[in-house]
Amino acid sequence: MADLGESPTHSPPGAVQQFFRRVGETKQNLLDKATPYTAFRWTCTIVLFLIYGLRVYLLQGWYIVTYALGIFQLNQFIAFLTPKVDPAFQEQDDDEDGPSLPTKSNEEFRPFMRRLPEFKFWYSASKAVVVAMICTFFEALNIPVFWPILVMYFIILFVITMKRQIRHMIKYRYVPFSHGKRRYQGKEDSGKVVS
């Protein structure tokens, strides 16, 4: 019978576990270093997307994969444009204490908080393009379809979704983009202490 007071002995982590831990730490370190470089990150993602588009064009296939990528990116973009606390639901539930968008001109300014932050949007968009690129190496995923119908359906879906999102933005008077921090002009501090 085992002694219940003793803690079970754990064997040291194996080589495989250490390898994956090291890979995870390296990945997180690179992501942390890339965080402040927004323009560079998005430029790399756009270049990846263009390479993917060129690959699909040259291979003349994988239209279903491309359509799925487009739907995923549209879904992520809508989450990026949407506030974390939806004002439509906030009107119904006024007891919530969380941050919200000002609805009247005399309310205090609160920063726009997104449902999907910019960094997570970039990261998921980049991963999706890489996964789609990997999918183009598998012939089983090259399902034959009439691609103009997919393009038309995506355009219609994009227009309807964006129209609804823009109406929501107009109705609740919020703009999901800001160009820098507001600066207030006040009196200059002379550095003198008045007693």
Rank of each mutant, 00 (worst) to 15 (best):
F72C: 09
F112Y: 12
N142Q: 01
K127G: 00
Q28Y: 03
P111H: 08
Q17W: 00
V23N: 00
M152K: 06
G24N: 06
G61P: 12
H10G: 02
Q73K: 12
V151R: 03
D93I: 13
V65C: 12
F80H: 15
Y63S: 12
E96M: 13
P144H: 03
F77E: 14
L116A: 05
E6F: 02
S195E: 04
S126K: 00
I46C: 03
A88T: 11
N29L: 01
G191F: 00
V175I: 06
Y67F: 15
F154Y: 12
I46R: 06
L150A: 05
E25P: 00
D95H: 10
V159H: 05
Q73W: 15
T161G: 11
N106K: 12
E188V: 02
C44M: 09
I64P: 13
Y67M: 14
F89I: 15
Y37Q: 08
L58D: 13
P148H: 07
I149D: 00
K120D: 07
L141A: 09
Y57G: 12
L116F: 05
E188N: 01
G70V: 15
T66C: 12
Q17H: 06
I134N: 00
V85Q: 14
W42C: 09
D3C: 10
R41A: 00
L48D: 07
L31M: 09
E96I: 14
M113T: 07
V129W: 04
K33Y: 12
A2M: 08
P36I: 14
F77S: 14
Y67P: 07
T161D: 06
W147K: 10
F146H: 08
S7C: 02
D189C: 03
P148A: 07
G191Y: 05
Q185R: 06
T45P: 02
Q92M: 15
M169E: 02
Y184K: 13
L4W: 03
P8W: 02
K27I: 01
L157M: 03
K127E: 01
L4S: 01
Q18N: 08
A132L: 05
R21Y: 06
P12S: 05
F77P: 14
E108D: 09
R183L: 14
K84V: 12
D94H: 15
L54Y: 09
P99T: 07
P176D: 02
V16P: 00
S11D: 04
I78M: 13
N106S: 15
L50F: 10
G24K: 02
I166V: 09
T35L: 11
D97A: 13
T161S: 10
T66H: 11
I156Y: 05
P87S: 15
V159W: 08
L31S: 00
D3I: 12
H179Y: 11
P12T: 05
L116H: 00
P144R: 00
A140E: 11
F177W: 03
I46D: 03
